[in-house]
Write a protein that binds this DNA or RNA. Structure first.
Lengths: 349, 349
DNA sequence: TTGTAGGCGTTATCAG
DNA sequence: CTGATAACGCCTACAA
């Protein structure tokens, strides 16, 4: 079996037809007589031909049937977040109508190894995340002339992006707390920039990550002077770390914490309980995302439910549309406020 | 801009060199004079040429730089399991030395939509999971003559696969319980077949999923008559469902439960506590995987720690090796027993 | 160091 | 319904 793989011409020859006819038999793009069809199939079987080489086909067609999904962090880290997971599901759905599969790409700037944005045979790209580095990825993809959709990202003019009403949604949660009577509030944010450094955000600092900035703005519309503490990533552990910082000094405990994600909120709840505080009696906590957080029972987070799967699907359908020269639509999605059991009026002193 | 994209020959012409020279400049496979190099780069810039078309390059090279990862379930579902997540990380690592990226493929048998195993431009494939359906995927890939590695799967002869010492590891956990004095034990298993049906497994039934069968066998080496209850998937919720079944009848409660995954174990612990039992005083619970389970605090599961990331990396390196005509090695991995706080001697009656 | 030649395997087009 | 032809864009011996 040291002979080279059979090609469609081999099959055609074996079947006594032309290569183009054999091609048509496999693609089904043009009617063929039952007889030739059968002969071609038989020949293919005999030669062990398993169908057109996708590489050649994609060169000829100018399409590879692959959509790149670009992350700005370790895949494992990215997938730790249920929101991402759901989004991927939606994305897979969205592009499937295009008959495409998803290629996982990580743009970590290193660019040392080759499987990069520069060289991947993708028909379109979906950029996920919001780090400033995304701008670079965007540049690369655009230079290649590849249609691109950004999810929750800091895109430039003319780049379709799937957006959430982060600011307005977060404002609702803040307003909910205000309505309950809270005034002393601390905000736990997602990373504010690519360094993902933890810590209190100075007043003059600007979050360079859109989601973070938008949600922060929403909260500040209600609590304009609330201090904000940045987490290094969206996870329960990070939330707990932030929470411990917040609850460390009994004299300076806020009556409510606005966390920018459910995972962070869960961590804050945990830290509160570690500190001997009861949620929501002693402190109220709100999240963001509306995902199921394991280990939070019996609490039900007061949160903003975001349509994660829909987000992915919207992006998928958008690239599908762009590949068909249509204008993508329906990219603005809305979060829904959900009152849970983690918020209550502040304890009267 | 209605003109077609520039090709390497355009660039070459613009730079006043031959196409092959331009090619070499981009690939760097052959030394070029600094002068030509500069001219080519300049020409490329001028024409907006962003590098060789990957489709053409991969046809010519016979390589696409893409490794397919085949799942047998919804991506979202698959990624819900931290073990999978870590494995993907390792996999990404493993293939990166090959300069490859990962293509997510779902083999759901439907085969209705096209982005399938049949047509994806992949250089190699990694099959994940253990459902009988994997056999079909395997067949397809092998027919295409693509190197393939199976992780924890039910492969045939001659297919390299990454394996855990599931049976032996699970036996250790069982032995640990036996040593503590337990005799009345129930096993909570992963799905036993593709239907993922919950329920008690009849004695004459055979688990058709390798992992499940192997771990079950390991437990039965010590507790040969322990009843086994199948879960529908590996999750905390499923574990809790199983746990409720097990602890429903106070008269028939076991003194220990062997769960085939940490997530299931966490669910069992939760169910036990719901039933008013204390872990490990009233009931001991062991898991499998060694992942961090949120929400289990303050318990630390007694479990078998499996090298999840290493598993992925091993698979990645194996396909890399196969693509270089080498023989993959180091595919047998070992779990490590970790004693936690969820096991103790049975309460003396 | 650079150029020439030939082909990687397929499919779109168009004529028969 | 079938066949001839001509790219698709690039790469790699090999020769100069």
């Amino acid at each position: 079996m040291s002979t080279r793989r059979a090609t469609i011409s081999d099959v055609a020859r074996e079947a006594g037809v032309s290569a183009s006819t054999a091609s048509v038999v496999f693609s089904g793009k043009t009617p063929t007589s039952e007889a030739t069809r059968a002969r071609v199939i038989a020949a293919a079987e005999k030669l062990g031909y398993t169908g057109p080489d996708p590489r050649a086909a994609s060169l000829r067609r100018g399409r590879s049937g692959i959509v790149g999904v670009v992350f700005d962090q370790h895949l494992g880290t990215a997938f730790l977040d249920p929101v991402t997971t759901h989004m991927m599901d939606g994305l897979a759905d969205g592009v499937s109508r295009l008959g495409a599969a998803l290629l996982l790409l990580r743009d970590d700037g290193h660019t040392v190894s080759e499987p990069s944005l520069h060289t991947a045979p993708i028909d379109a790209a979906v950029l996920i995340g919001c780090s400033p580095r995304m701008r670079d990825s965007l540049e690369i993809v655009r230079a290649r002339g590849i249609p691109v959709v950004v999810i929750e990202g800091d895109a430039g003019e003319g780049i379709p992006r799937v957006l959430l009403d982060n600011t307005e949604a977060q404002r609702q949660a803040a307003q909910h707390l205000a309505d309950l009577g809270h005034a002393d509030v601390v905000i736990v944010t997602l990373p504010i920039d690519i360094d993902r450094r933890r810590g209190w955000i100075p007043d003059d600092a600007e979050a360079r990550v859109d989601v973070t900035a938008d949600r922060l703005a929403g909260a500040r519309q209600v609590f304009s002077h609330a201090p904000a503490l940045a987490a290094a990533t969206s996870s329960i552990d990070e939330g707990a770390i932030a929470g411990r910082t917040i609850f460390a000094d009994p004299a300076r405990r806020p009556t409510a914490v606005i966390a920018q994600s459910d995972l962070l909120a869960a961590g804050v709840v945990r830290a509160a309980e570690e500190a001997g505080l009861q949620v929501p009696r002693d402190v109220s906590v709100t999240g963001f995302d509306g995902v199921v957080v394991d280990g939070l029972a019996p609490h039900v987070l007061t949160t903003l439910v975001q349509p994660a799967t829909a987000k992915g699907r919207a992006a998928g359908e958008a690239v599908a549309a762009m590949l068909e020269d249509a204008t993508p639509a329906g990219l603005d999605l809305t979060c829904t406020f959900r009152a849970g059991t983690t918020t209550a009026p502040p304890r009267s002193t």
